[in-house]
Design a protein around this nucleic acid. Structure first.
Lengths: 110, 110
DNA sequence: GGCTTGCATCCGGATGAGCGGATATGCGGA
DNA sequence: TCCGCATATCCGCTCATCCGGATGCAAGCC
């Protein structure tokens, strides 16, 4: 295996893919795709304790997938790079493809 | 939060993102992007025990990200949908962007 | 049928990730 | 300065995941 690719993939995993490995974090990214949101807003949107939201935001912030800006006492988070959501949309399209295929298969079996 | 999006994201996570949450699995996908490979070939490429490769392949197979075909005593795996690798490439581009930004920042600080 | 080869699965152990209540910190208003 | 709000971090806990050697299983050869 190409050592270069291996190192690159390790970086990719550590910096991005691992961050996408939790459904709540993906939801946060989609919520931010509509524009910046404060932690409180995200807490309401996701309907989980605030500490949980902050913990997930920390993961996303450390990987620079989101960026934070303080406005008075509130902190507004926003997407750093929309391409992350685009990639997720691509994966969603793949998912629909396989789901459709499974449905097809199930119909054929019946 | 839109319940529909929430369900969709849960599916996306369970079926795809979780499968991308391990660097070895990402490497397998990239290896398969060059064409079908047998388990033995992947074992050599990744340089890990065969049981480990088979375990990861099982995860990818269950999510239908790869498909298996038996040729005699060997099993050849191939990518089900190239778009998965395309999405990974997009994320790689994002990664390079943030890495460049960090380098820039580090230079500015020195 | 016995053997080899290639792959899948089982198992116990170690590590990591998520959780959410409690608490700390930072900021603006009175 | 003291208070209150918004957010961040700490803590102990539970659960998920990965690992790799050992073992099971299918297919072809003799």
């Amino acid at each position: 295996m190409d050592e270069r690719l291996e190192r690159e993939v390790n970086l990719l995993h550590a910096n991005i893919c691992q961050a996408l490995a939790d459904p709540k974090r993906i939801l946060i990214l989609y919520a931010l795709a509509d524009g910046p949101r404060s932690v409180g807003e995200l807490t309401d949107t996701l309907n989980v304790p605030q500490s949980t939201v902050s913990r997930h935001l920390k993961v996303l912030r450390e990987r620079q997938l989101v960026s934070a800006a303080r406005y008075g006492v509130a902190v507004h988070y926003s997407l750093t790079d929309r391409r992350v959501v685009e990639a997720l949309d691509t994966l969603r399209a793949v998912l629909f493809g396989t789901l459709a295929q499974r449905a097809e298969l199930a119909r054929g079996l019946s």
